[in-house]
Write a protein that binds this DNA or RNA. Structure first.
Lengths: 108, 108
DNA sequence: CTTTCATGCAACTATTTGGTTGCGTTAAAT
DNA sequence: ATTTAACGCAACCAAATAGTTGCATGAAAG
């Protein structure tokens, strides 16, 4: 049950290994656990755990195919995270705009 | 010494309390530790630790004024995080564009 | 059918994290 | 000068995290 809450999303991204996995998947492809673990200095289970964290945060799509499990990046989750950051920026801009408007109104 | 590494940045944002603090600061204002802690169900020190994490990740600017310490959001850090997410999207788009180009070239 | 390979599950460990409390320091207010 | 308010530092604790290993299972390949 993916959560999609911003904090959950950012927490999942807050680890170099997981960020690397997301980067690897950023071409939109699907990969198996072993494929994603290739070259990483840790056990398969460690990689599986990381993928589970990413999946739990709603960042990955999971598909079983035979004896393999394939993960793919969920673009909407990335957009959700981006959206939160945009909102922070918007709030900032909005406040400054209102401030500017007030100053100008005061001037006129 | 703020790090500004993406994983460090996301990790700092990966906690509801800290996300709330960032939201509070998203109007661009400066606030003291006690001010930022008002209404939060935890001790001042807990809040101070959270602010230190955010500052350590490069997300907050810190200014001492008399006996108070004021924190403000660093917009460039927010943009850095956003930039990383944008890059993931761009990679995705790029791959799809290349794929489409290949298909079209194959068709022509 | 037997073997191999990708995975899941569970136990265990060390480190990090999010929180606490107590105390000391310094700046502001009375 | 004394008190109060905002902070920093350090010790401590429980829970979560990132990793390990060993073993069981189910699908593919021989």
């Amino acid at each position: 049950m993916p959560s999609s809450e911003p904090a959950h999303l950012f927490a999942a991204l807050g680890d170099p290994t997981r960020l690397g996995l997301v980067t690897r998947l950023s071409d939109g492809s699907e990969r198996s656990i072993v494929q994603l673990g290739e070259g990483l200095p840790m056990s398969r289970q460690a990689v599986a755990k990381h993928l589970d964290v990413l999946h739990g945060a709603g960042l990955l799509h999971r598909r079983k195919s035979g004896r393999e499990v394939h993960y793919a990046l969920r673009r909407d989750a990335i957009e959700a995270a981006r959206g939160w950051l945009d909102q922070v920026n918007a709030q900032w801009d909005g406040t400054l705009a209102r401030l500017k408007a007030m100053v100008e109104e005061g001037d006129g």
